[in-house]
Every structure is written in C-alpha cells, then in structure tokens.
C-alpha cells in the first residue's frame, strides 16, 4: 500500500523511546468539502497531537459538522489531505486507504459520537450487543468475554448492569448517549470525533455527560475533535478551539484565550452573545 507516507524510523530528530507527544496524531492540510460556495468547509489545516482535545465552534451552517464528517471519512475531501499516525507510528494518507482499511480504522482506532444517539446505536439490539459489536467485528468469538466487556463499559458510563439485555430504545436520551460512548470506547480508540454530544439533552443530564467525558478523555488519554455550538461545553472539554464561519476557520488557539480574549469580530460576537446565569 502506498498509503504509508513514512515509517517511524524515517522521522528525524526524534529520540528513540520518546513519547509520541512531539509528533502529531493527525495532520490536516487545506482540507475542503463544499456543498455550495460558503457551505461546507474550505482550506482547513491543523495538527492534532496525542491527548489533545480540540473544539470546533461556530453557528449552525458554519461548516463545522461537514468538517467533522470529512475528517472522519464519512464525506470525501474535495481537496487537501488528512494524514494519520497509527499505533505503529506509520503515517497513513486517509484518501489512499482502501474502503475496507478505512472502515477498520474508523471502527478500531477511531470513534464517532453522533449528536443523535439513534444514528450511532442499534436501537433494537441490546445494550450488551451494542457494546460488543466492535469487538465481534474484530473477531472476538467468546461470549463470556463479550459479556465482561459489556459490563465493564456499562459501569464505566454509569449505566446499571441490570440494563445489559435491554434495548436502548427503552433508555432515556442521556443514557442512550452514554451507551453510544461505551460502544465506541470498547475498542480502545485513540481518536474520537464528537458531534454536539450534549445537544438535545436536559441541562442536568448534560452536566453528568460532560463530567463523564472529561474523566474518560483524561483517563484513556484520548485525542478528541468535538464540534459544538455551546461555548460552555467547549470551555469544559477542549484544550484548544477552532472558530468557523461560512466554511472558513477564522480563529484558532488555546480555549481560554479564545474565549477570554477573542480577536476576530465573529468570535467576539459569539462570545458576547453567550448568556451567563
């Protein structure tokens, strides 16, 4: 496969045994996917390092969700490239991967949390089966171990173990969202995409979910790209932010710097429009 851009040995100046911290997990260069002029994302470039949580903020229609789907391989890039450094340290060019390789990457190394849990869950399969699906797709053929993984992850996302054989369509919205998270984390992904993960939830349920996400991100050393229009969510979860408007990134930087000292007129407008109780 010519998808491998460089192998670990070819990197210069990298001391052996140093943590991957100095090398980006994701390199995105001039990425575009436009549905129409100004609709979608245009020429987006950034690097994401291991353990970093990057928020993408902007109003609806700003192109942040299109960007997320293009990054996650759900939409084809019209130009630009995405390079991903895998567990072996090989840099993969996402567009040169075969459909099958891309699918496997998306279901093992990566995860995607949809805004609506219906899009990310099998509502008519039990909670345990939802959690076990990634493992089964990877070849796990031991029922007992699948049950164990189901219990472990239900516990991790604070769903009572007694619900393991219940179908998620009988769950509350917050519980469905937590199940979706468990279903993604079971394969121990390194990179998680989240699309408004707290959207559509009650405020008290949101707080619980945010707290859970915060703890999981830290304890599992996840890299995350989270799309949200909620600046409070961004402040709580993201290390750094990209602000998007009409498909373009207008400002990016450290989260608290962007929110406390916004430079771009649009960011200032966004920040000043937030209601604080």
């Amino acid at each position: 496969m010519n998808a491998i851009i460089s192998a670990p040995g070819q990197q210069q100046g990298q001391p052996p045994g140093a943590s991957g911290d100095t090398l980006p997990l994701l390199e995105v260069h001039q990425l575009s996917h436009l549905h129409a002029p100004g609709k979608g994302c245009e020429n987006v470039s950034f690097e994401l390092y291991p353990g970093e949580v990057m928020g993408v903020v902007g109003e609806s229609g700003s192109g942040k969700t299109t960007l997320l789907h293009t990054l996650a391989g759900n939409l084809p890039p019209q130009s630009g490239y995405i390079h991903y450094r895998d567990r072996q340290g090989d840099v993969l060019n996402l567009q040169s991967l075969s459909e099958g390789e891309q699918m496997r990457l998306l279901r093992t190394d990566w995860g995607f949390i949809h805004q609506n849990p219906r899009d990310g869950l099998r509502l008519r399969a039990s909670a345990g089966a939802n959690i076990g699906e990634r493992l089964m797709a990877q070849g796990e053929r031991h029922f007992g171990r699948l049950r164990e993984a189901g219990r472990k992850w239900l516990d991790a996302v604070e769903i009572p173990l007694s619900r393991i054989d219940d179908q998620p369509r009988t769950f509350s919205g917050g519980m469905q969202q937590r199940l979706q998270i468990a279903r993604n984390l079971v394969s121990e992904p390194r990179l998680l995409f989240m699309d408004e993960p707290t959207g559509g939830l009650d405020v008290s349920v949101q707080a619980r979910l945010l707290d859970l996400l915060r703890r999981l991100v830290v304890s599992l050393d996840l890299s995350v790209i989270i799309v949200t229009h909620d600046l409070a969510v961004a402040r709580l979860l993201a290390d750094r932010l990209m602000v998007m408007k009409e498909g373009q990134v207008v400002e990016s930087g450290l989260t608290d710097q962007i929110l406390d000292d916004p430079q771009h007129p649009y960011t200032q407008l966004l920040v000043s429009s937030v209601l604080t109780p």
Partner: peptide, 9 residues
C-alpha cells in the same frame, strides 16, 4: 498576569 498565563494573547 493573564498575559503571563497566555490567557491573553
């Protein structure tokens, strides 16, 4: 102080 903490650009 905030500039020293990079809270301000």
């Amino acid at each position: 102080l905030r500039s020293l903490y990079a809270n301000y650009l």
